[in-house]
Amino acid sequence: MTLPRTPFLLAAAASLLGMLTTASAASPCQDAAAEPATEADETPAPQVVVGETDSIWSYLVQKYDTDSDGSISRAEYSRDDATFGRLDRNGDGAVTAEEVEREGGRGGPPSSMMATMVVMRAFGGDAGGRFPTGLTREQLETGAAAMDTDADLTITRVEFDAHMGRRGGGRMPEMDRFGMLLEGVDTGKDGSVSREELLRWFDAADSDKDGQLSMQRRGGRGEGREGPGRGGPDGSSRGARGRQPAGAPEPEAGVGRSAPDFTLQPMNEGEPVTLSSFAGKTPVALIFGSYT
């Protein structure tokens, strides 16, 4: 199945950069609070759009459900029509928990996608420490048996945390990974995950019934639940240097080509930065990503 991207890949870069930033020309972060950019034809005022509540629905309720009736009307929703339209899946003028949490998006409910991320990380193939790119049913069975240290056929939070501790905690210790697993997999709602529930979940996710789930990104849009197996966006064999398959259009930012120039605003105060200003002076590493 196709996995959602992880939000925390930016964090992986830091392990690399810990070594190299001493050699870099990177300047320390300015602490000044930036003024919001003034945009001439901007109608809405900027809002706070990031939060850390226990669920997407609770975030929305806290922000918008001013009459506390358990649904969010268009009048209560203070952002734009287009976004409200996407949230209001059945188009009845009200956004409800069911639409947000159960239907989710093309990739399925958020809880299901998050459970998948957790399972991949907990049991997925360890290709020399690289990010797991696949998970076979056998790996899941073996891994679950290993995690179930008292062999009672269920995995408790304690057993899960112990196993994940051995694998490495990652950079987001506040993530309730076991909680995510429970949401997605614990059909019995008994606070633990039976090995049977895990396998049933796997079989349901394995839509092409090939006994494995693989991480596959197609066309950069992250849609679909199963991909054609390993490889580049179009299923081609993966080259570490981004080699394109024969017949594919040459990418604008292909290896050997002149890097597409840009001028972007820095996150902190300062002059806009133009990529081409570094040519002839220093190489530039670019790490593209977002929080979610």
Binding site: P4, D54, I56, T83
Partner: peptide, 18 residues
């Protein structure tokens, strides 16, 4: 990539919500 109002929303349980 996974804004809550996107085609593939993620967030909650310690994962950021945007």
């Amino acid at each position: 990539a996974h804004a809550l109002d996107s085609p593939s929303p993620l967030g909650g349980k310690g994962m950021p919500i945007v």
